[in-house]
Computed example of a mutant assay.
Amino acid sequence: MNLDALSLSILVPAFLAGLLVLATHVPMGMQVLSRSIVFIDLAIAQIATLGVIAADLFGFEPEGWVAQVAAVSAALLGALLLTWTERRWPDVQEALIGVLFVLAASGGMLLVANNPHGGEHLRDLLAGQILWVSTAQLLPVAALAATILILWFGLRDRLGRFGFYGLFAFAVTTSVQLVGVYLVFASLIVPALACRLYSPHIRLAVGYAVGAAGYILGLGLSVLFDLPSGAVVVWTLALVGIAAYSLGPDPSRSVAK
Rank of each mutant, 00 (worst) to 15 (best):
L227Q: 07
S9G: 11
W89Q: 11
L82C: 06
A113D: 12
L224Y: 10
P200Y: 05
T236P: 02
R87L: 14
G64S: 08
D157A: 15
P251T: 02
G108S: 12
M28K: 07
I242D: 00
Y215W: 11
E94I: 11
E86F: 09
L131R: 02
N2F: 05
I53K: 03
A244H: 03
F39M: 14
V184P: 02
F225A: 15
I202M: 08
M30T: 10
Q68G: 15
L159G: 07
P249T: 15
L149S: 05
L159M: 12
W152I: 12
A55E: 00
A127V: 15
G241D: 09
L111R: 01
Q93Y: 03
L159T: 02
T49E: 00
F168P: 03
G166F: 09
Y165C: 10
E120C: 08
M109V: 13
L224F: 11
V172W: 01
A212T: 13
Q137D: 09
L77T: 06
L22F: 04
E63T: 15
H117P: 01
V232R: 07
S9R: 13
L204Q: 09
R87F: 07
P251G: 04
F164K: 09
A244W: 03
F101S: 11
A256K: 04
G18F: 05
G154A: 11
L183Y: 01
N2E: 04
G119H: 06
V172M: 06
A209S: 12
L221T: 08
A105K: 00
R35W: 08
L81E: 00
L96M: 14
S252M: 13
W235C: 15
F162N: 08
A71N: 02
S7P: 00
G241M: 12
L8P: 03
Y182V: 15
V66I: 14
V112G: 04
I37K: 10
F101N: 09
R161C: 09
E63S: 14
A256G: 05
N114I: 10
P13I: 05
R158G: 14
Q31D: 06
P13C: 09
L159K: 01
D157G: 07
A231Q: 06
D124N: 13
A143N: 01
I242E: 00
L16E: 00
R161F: 06
H201M: 13
L77S: 05
L110M: 13
G248E: 10
V72G: 03
S222L: 12
V26E: 10
